[in-house]
């Protein structure tokens, strides 16, 4: 059987543990449809945490770029 070492893939939001890798390619609408009525937390907030790459902003600091 496949070795599923999930330790570095799990993110816990509220009382739910998500496999972060499962959301690659999933849209926000698909996420909200899948989890409608199933989470005790706000779906928009949950989506933000599951898609951290979307929230990474490029540094505008000149110093950082050097």
């Amino acid at each position: 059987m496949e070795n599923l070492n999930l330790n570095n893939k799990i993110i816990k939001i509220g009382n739910t543990e998500f496999n972060k890798n499962s959301f690659e390619g999933m849209t926000k609408d698909e996420f909200k449809k899948l989890y409608r009525g199933k989470l005790a937390v706000d779906l928009d907030d949950a989506w933000k945490q599951l898609k951290p790459k979307n929230r990474v902003k490029k540094s505008t600091s000149k110093k950082d770029e050097d």
Binding site: L4, N7, I10, K12, N15, T16, F18, F23
Partner: peptide
């Protein structure tokens, strides 16, 4: 219990199913 405490196996297709999430009821 949480995500890491389970494995789901599709016995029909003989393949591991990667669970998307597990929620413990409050």
């Amino acid at each position: 219990m949480g995500l890491a405490d389970f494995q789901v196996f599709n016995n029909t297709t003989s393949s591991v199913v990667t669970v998307t999430s597990v929620t413990e009821s409050t």
